[in-house]
Design a protein around this nucleic acid. Structure first.
Lengths: 336, 336
DNA sequence: ATGTACTTTGACACCGGTGTCATAATGTCG
DNA sequence: CGACATTATGACACCGGTGTCAAAGTACAT
């Protein structure tokens, strides 16, 4: 079976390559009769244009790359699913590329990625969306990109994020309204901007409700389940034990719940536990976790959609959006 | 800043394109002096070969596609991580493509994928690795592929799987050795070959230990948490209640655990619960789930590695391997 | 010095499309 | 019916690499 190329189609249809190309791209200036004839030959020969050749001629690949370095697998899955939705809508494909934020190698690594597979654009997810170094590099390389959940102020690049600070504020307020005063807090990964935002949401809520902020109630996590388990030990050993724990994501909250349950503490009677993200695990465990629903898929979907629009028309206005985070109450929190 | 191409390098170095190409690909028959000179120019101009042009000339993309349709997100994450490891080892990249097994559209969808991004090969994960229709199609299209966790007998294509039946057998035997006789079973998704294998492992263990198999103790799930929750309801309502539940994966087991806990049953004192896969959730909940560790990453890693070897040298012997699954006991199972 | 074998090098076509521009065909109007 | 504008079409270069093959250069034996 011989390969069907634009040449064979042209020959078979008795027209020039260029005319075939015109039909292929729905360009004007082809007579209806010719167009019909060529389309017919497409069908007859089952012709499929070679995307690589096309890519070479137009300097495009129709592939978007997704950069991530995140201990929370469910976050990544959600990111991917949002990104894929946008990609497929525009007939793009998604290439995934986990890599480490730290080290000299980041830039080199991304550079390598760009040279081994001509990407049309990149979606940056935390913590990459906050890496000024990376962003500067991409700008010098003229690689279009979009930031997801980034806290960086940069009017010149696409950004879709959600209101972390307000979410954390609301969740803390929820705990306060239940009568809690000793609310422990587990911070996220230092490299993620969300970490600071969630923390200040927590602090501000305490402040505005006249509750003293105590450094001793704060543990440092990194968004991984493991770090949550470590922090849980610290927190549950505090005397007197806090009556509520607010972890910066659901994985860490799940770790607290596990340790508490292991220690025969009743949740929420003895201690309330809340997380952030509304990851699947929040509803897969008992009691279900009160948390903040962050529209991860939607953020990424919008970011990638805008990225693709930007790619097809660089004059498109730069899209910047903050989506709402919303409180979800489940069984893990109750009145003191 | 002008683009640096093989032409500019050639001109600058005062040699022909072809010689530059030779140096680029480490081909023989270049004098040491010339090679050195060209390498020097590479550095000076910061030259990076254009992968698309290369792809066109060699008809290669250095991209592997990963096909999946799986309700278990953690399974997908693990698949991806194994696949990425192999890809990066050989300087390939990974493109992910979720799509639905059902419907006429599968073939069309994959066809579309192949035409929009010339992939060098495909990794098929369950349930695609068991789709004879898809496999036949890929063979007619001459697209190299590797099957992960496939039950299909096909000597001519790469396959890496794990011993599902034996794993299920061992887990069931473990429960029997703890004194359980009424062991409920939740089946997985009908389209996955693992479903039948795990089920027969369970049945054979009962048989060999002289325990009567009861259809009434079997529920039909589909590997999703949700289906596990439904099955859990059926099973916990059986009178007398089974003393142990073996779910075909950890998500469904977690759902059983949640419902049991909700109903104030003590696990494992009142009822033992076991899963399959050793997904992260198995150790993120309390009590931790006894389960079968399936080397998902390793299976995929080997499959992709072999796929790439196959691509670079089609005469490579077809690799077929069955990895061991292994019992992990945690707190969710105990003597009756 | 000559013949032979091997290494090094470059000219040129090619991969399968797209962009530019000249030319041919057709339409419009006075 | 001629002058001119507009539409349809194809020839050809080009994107940035790789494959083929012939020619030039070098080494060594005779």
């Amino acid at each position: 079976m011989k390969k069907v190329t634009i040449n064979s189609v042209a020959e078979y249809a008795g027209v020039s390559k260029k005319t075939v190309s015109r039909v292929l791209n729905n360009e004007p200036n082809v007579s209806p009769a010719t167009r019909e004839k060529v389309l017919q030959v497409f069908k007859e020969l089952d012709y499929k244009p070679n995307p690589i050749a096309r890519g070479l001629a137009r300097n495009k690949s129709f592939i978007i790359g997704c950069l991530y370095d995140n201990p929370s697998k469910s976050y990544i899955t959600r990111v991917q699913s949002g990104a894929l939705e946008a990609c497929h809508k525009f007939n793009y494909n998604l290439l995934i590329h986990p890599c480490e934020l730290r080290g000299e190698e980041l830039i080199h690594n991304v550079d390598q990625l760009l040279t081994t597979s001509r990407l049309d654009g990149l979606v940056l997810t935390p913590p990459f969306s906050d890496s000024q170094e990376l962003i500067d590099f991409l700008k010098t390389q003229n690689v279009p990109f979009a930031r997801v959940a980034s806290a960086l102020e940069d009017e010149s690049s696409i950004s879709v994020s959600s209101n972390d600070e307000q979410g954390a504020y609301e969740l803390t307020e929820h705990l306060i309204s239940l009568g809690h005063k000793d609310i422990a807090f587990i911070k996220g990964h230092r490299d993620h901007s969300a970490t600071e935002k969630r923390f200040s949401g927590y602090q501000n809520a305490l402040l505005n409700h006249g509750i003293e902020f105590k450094e001793s109630l704060v543990a440092q996590g990194n968004f991984s389940y493991h770090s949550g388990a470590d922090s849980a030990k610290e927190i549950l050993d505090i005397e007197p034990m806090p009556t509520a724990v607010f972890a910066s994501n659901d994985y860490m909250a799940a770790a607290v719940l596990k340790l508490a349950t292991q220690r025969k503490l009743r949740v929420p009677e003895d201690i309330s536990i809340a997380g952030f993200d509304n990851a699947p695990i929040a509803r897969h465990i008992w009691p279900g976790l009160t948390t903040i629903a962050q529209p991860v898929e939607e953020m990424t979907r919008q970011a990638v959609e805008q990225l693709i629009l930007q790619i097809s028309d660089p004059s498109t206005e730069v899209y910047q959006k903050v989506l709402e985070a919303k409180l979800i109450t489940r069984e893990s929190t109750a009145a003191k």
